[in-house]
Design a binder for these strands. Structure first.
Length: 885
RNA sequence: GGGAGGUUAGCUCAGCGGUAGAGCGCCUGCUUUACACGCAGGUGGUCGGGGGUUCGAUCCCCUCACCUCCCACCA
């Protein structure tokens, strides 16, 4: 495409800024400058007010998705805001080794080479994962830079770093010594796809259409036998008992009998168990499979039943399954059902909705599986963690999450932390030839119990979340008493999605209290999950927003601003592409306001800050609005309302500063007037407002604001460290606000008047304002604004005089206006007047009814009643005015 | 089976006791020289249904309907 002609180029040289901007021109540059200048590291002396966050470490395998972008944008807004507000800010970056996820990535690669991890052996495989990590892991870190995240890269951590690994090991040792970690054979959630145990949280229940099979077992001495129901017939091969309820008369005949397990022929005792058996359900007879069901396992414990494992770790039937050995569990199910049917034992096969547990990672059907695992005893950890939230040591924002937290924490089961994987922190437990366990920080040379030197380390690794739970202090060097730990722990705010409240947040609180005696953070901001236009993002819907593509198309600032604006307190955050464009437009608006301002300031003596004297009403108005806006932004940020905060700056900058003030000062700044005092005042106000806007906006749009800041102040890369506008109230000015808001309302009314009459926007209008208007407070101020009013509303005549008989009349902002189009012949607008009149009459009727209601007058607050009276009076004026028109 | 959240303008969402707001969209005008990624004006809402509390309810309570999510060992 040929270059745009000289017009733009000329504009560029004369104003210093191009007409539209290209974020790619400066984003990378400013990030490098900030980093080089050390702004991402906490300055100031230890002990002075600081603000600390740790990033929720993304998986090393990860690429930045819109959810990360959202959470990290929020964190960066907080970091930049606090930094500009004078805090020593530290935001710690890092990544998570993500056991299963990462191992799966590398295993997939191996599979493409026709290999399995076992072919390489443990050492080689792990080396291979590290190699992968070196070349394509950590991609997400560069992507966080693109987003503008002001993370302290000098403190970058990885959960498998030597220091963090030591912390993990030490935490394990401490819990083990305190009896809070134990090893045992229990039924756990087993994923045959991942070939490892997983925790309860990693099992995703999915409603699925299944079948409930009813199977008859023979019971010698009981003619009709016993009918049991199951959705997993293949597990029957592992049955070691039947259970009935002790008080169920229906099955009284089965008491003390023995049943015969079909196919296998095993002799099964009939036990009576009131806990397992629900008398209401089905036949009241339950098959007991201790090796493949949590409840049945408990029954087995109670009655000393054997446990027979019939489904192996690979999801195939074990040799215990006899002729079915080696078959996939689902194939076996089918064959067993066929056989039962052939034998006439299948009483029924009914459609049944089941909650199918599936693996969060691989989506395989989870199998309850009896195996030896390591567990954390949760109750002693949960109790203080519950208290910490109850007593406000840890606060949730929004608060409503506390309820969910409590509900979960009060019903916790022990946490299975061992994983049959290779990638992760290896369990520091060693078994000697005599079967004794030694658990230690350093690899032991001999068994603690018998001194045997023949030690073998437990092959399992720890659940990834076991290391993540230590993150807020392991990143600072715990268990060493490092200066960083001293200085920056506990942290202040933790920002993350509510989806990992249990996985991570709750466990961090437990671990923090246990290991450091302090809660790891004082506030948890749980945000919603990002949806696109209310819909879940998915490739099949084709609505996936890739933040990196969005950054490329709209700029990082626009992406950030959009995400911040979308931040809602609810469980979903809705983002649309249209909003990205809107944010980009907003950045351009700012850019152009800056161009205009620079044009005004160029070649003139440096402006001084506005000083209260010689300020016009518009000057005072915009300063007042700025003051209020700054206070609002501050308040909203305190309350984690990023949408409101962003909206406040947006509204101020676009609609008040640009649409309002800029237009008002143009005549003041024009050629003839530009040397005069009011123009000088306006220029200083303009500069002040723009600079403040840049500062206010910087946490949301760091790049474009820094770029403009350089042009405006000549101080490159310093906006990031400029004090954040506080909104002290110093410039609050009710008089100026009333007058200018009235002015703006009148201007709008005049323009609408033209539209109503079908007149062109340039058609001169004569306006008369009645000094005896119902609300006269603004009249003197308004009189000083007369030239401005004439200019903005394009009036051919403006008078402060009683309403003109015969002219069109209306009441705006409490002021009685008479309007006329001296040159117009068109007479439109009558329909509109009629409509307006009807609406006014309607409201008058309602308000007068209200004011005639004694109960209202008596019970409503006087201020409200007064407001109603005022409104009624105004409406009556308006009705009169419109009626005369 | 429990629990939480939602239902407000065509779309996406704010508001949560004094009769409704934004962005986008839509309509109508504009080379008003910072900006068409713009300016100006406008259109558009029985605030899911029903009941109650209140002087007054989109906002509080009850109930129904429909969505979404979380938790739970019902064979």
């Amino acid at each position: 495409m040929p270059e745009k002609p000289a017009l733009d180029a000329a504009a560029a040289t004369s104003k210093g800024l191009e007409k539209t901007f290209d974020p790619a021109h400066f984003e990378e540059r400013w990030y490098a400058v900030w980093e080089k200048d050390g702004h991402f590291q906490p300055g100031g002396p230890p002990g002075s007010p600081r603000f600390v966050m740790v990033i929720p470490p993304p998986n090393v395998t990860g690429r930045l998705h819109i959810g990360h972008a959202y959470g990290r944008t929020i964190e960066d807004i907080l970091a930049r805001w606090k930094r500009m507000s004078g805090y020593r800010v530290l935001w710690v970056p890092g990544t998570d080794h993500a056991g299963i996820a990462t191992q799966m990535v590398v295993e997939r690669q191996l599979r493409e080479e026709g290999l399995a991890r076992q072919d390489l052996g443990r050492e080689t495989f792990i080396e291979r994962v590290w190699a992968w990590r070196r070349e394509s892991g950590d991609m997400i870190l560069g992507q966080l830079r693109k987003l503008g995240c002001s993370l302290d890269w000098s403190r970058l951590r990885f959960t498998l770093d030597p220091e963090l690994s030591r912390a993990v090991r030490h935490a394990f040792v401490l819990l083990y010594r305190d009896g809070l970690i134990y090893k045992g054979r229990y039924v756990v959630n087993w994923c045959p796809g991942c070939r490892t145990a997983v925790s309860d949280l990693e099992v995703v229940e999915r409603k699925t259409k299944g079948t409930l099979y009813k199977i008859r077992y023979d019971v010698p001495g009981v003619a009709e036998g016993a009918v049991v129901a199951t959705t997993r017939p293949e597990t029957m091969l592992g049955d070691t008992a039947l259970a009935i309820h002790p008080e169920d008369p229906r099955n009284a005949a089965l008491r003390g009998k023995r049943a015969l397990l079909p196919i296998v022929g095993r002799d099964l005792p009939v036990v009576e168990d009131a806990i397992l058996v629900d008398r209401e359900f089905g036949t009241g007879v339950v098959k007991v499979t201790p090796a493949h069901d949590v409840n049945d396992f408990a029954v087995g414990q109670r009655y000393g039943l054997p446990a027979v494992v019939v489904i192996g770790p690979d999801g195939k039937m074990t040799p215990e399954a006899g002729e079915y050995a080696g078959l996939d569990r689902f194939v076996a199910r089918k064959k067993i059902v066929e056989r039962l049917e052939a034998e006439g034992r299948l009483v029924a096969a009914e459609p049944y909705e089941i909650n199918l547990g599936t693996c969060q990672r691989s989506e395989d059907v989870i199998e309850p599986y009896l195996s030896e695992q390591w567990f954390v005893r949760i109750e002693p950890l949960a109790e203080p963690a519950i208290r910490a939230v109850e007593d406000g040591t840890v606060r949730f924002a929004p608060e409503s999450w506390a309820k969910t937290y409590f509900a979960w924490m009060r019903n916790l089961r022990d946490w299975c932390i061992s994983r049959q994987l290779w990638w992760g922190h290896r369990i520091p437990a060693f078994t000697c030839a005599n079967g004794h366990l030694t658990v230690a920080d350093e690899d032991p040379a001999a068994c603690d119990t018998c001194g045997s030197a023949a030690l073998e380390q437990d092959p399992d690794v720890l659940d990834t979340w076991f290391s993540s739970q230590l993150w807020p202090f392991s990143v600072f060097g715990w268990p060493e008493k490092t200066p960083d730990l001293e200085d920056f722990y506990p942290t202040d705010v933790l920002v993350t999605g509510y989806d990992i409240l249990f996985f991570w947040v709750a466990r961090m609180i437990m671990a923090g209290l246990r290991f450091t005696g302090q809660a790891p953070f004082s506030t948890v901001h749980l945000h919603g999950l990002v949806r696109v236009g209310g819909e879940k993002m998915s490739k099949s819907r084709g609505n996936v927003i890739d933040p990196l593509e969005a950054i490329q198309e709209f700029g990082a600032d626009a992406v950030r601003f959009t995400l911040a604006s979308a931040a809602a307190s609810g469980p979903t955050v809705s983002v649309e592409r249209g909003r990205m464009a809107g944010s980009r437009n907003f950045a351009t608006k700012l850019w152009n306001a800056a161009r205009f301002t620079l044009g005004q300031l160029e070649g003139r003596p440096a402006t001084r800050p506005p000083d209260g004297q010689a300020l016009s009403l518009p000057d005072r108005w915009i300063l007042s609005r700025l003051d209020t806006t700054a206070a609002d932004v501050h308040r909203h940020l305190e309350g984690f309302r990023f949408d409101e905060a962003a909206g406040a700056v947006y509204g101020f900058l676009w609609h008040e500063l640009c649409d309002g003030y800029l237009e008002m000062v143009k005549p003041v700044l024009s050629q003839e007037a530009s040397a005069q005092a009011p123009a000088e005042a306006a220029r200083s106000v303009l500069r002040h407002c723009l600079e403040s806007s840049l500062a206010l906006l910087h946490p949301f749009m760091p790049f474009v604001t820094e770029e403009i800041w350089e042009k405006l102040t000549g101080n490159p890369g310093t906006l990031i460290a400029t004090p954040y506008p506080q909104g002290t109230g110093r410039w609050r000015d009710a008089e100026a606000e009333t007058a200018v808001e009235a002015l703006r309302a009148i201007v709008t009314r005049v323009r609408t008047f033209r539209t109503e009459r079908g007149a062109s926007p340039t058609e001169p209008v004569e306006l008369t304002i009645d000094p005896q208007s119902p609300s006269r407070a603004g009249i003197p101020a308004l009189e000083t604004l007369a030239p401005l009013l004439s200019h903005l509303a394009r009036l051919s005549d403006l008078r402060f005089a009683p309403a003109e008989a015969g002219a069109f009349q209306d009441v705006v902002a409490g002021l009685m206006l008479s309007l006329a189009l001296p040159q117009a012949s068109a007479a439109g607008g009558q329909a509109r007047v009629g409509k307006a009149l009807a609406a006014v009459a309607d409201e008058i009727a309602q308000l007068s009814a209200k004011l005639q209601n004694p109960a209202y007058l008596e019970k409503a607050p006087p201020a409200v009643v007064e407001k109603t009276r005022l409104r009624l009076r105004e409406l009556e004026e308006k009705r009169a005015a419109l009626g005369r028109s």
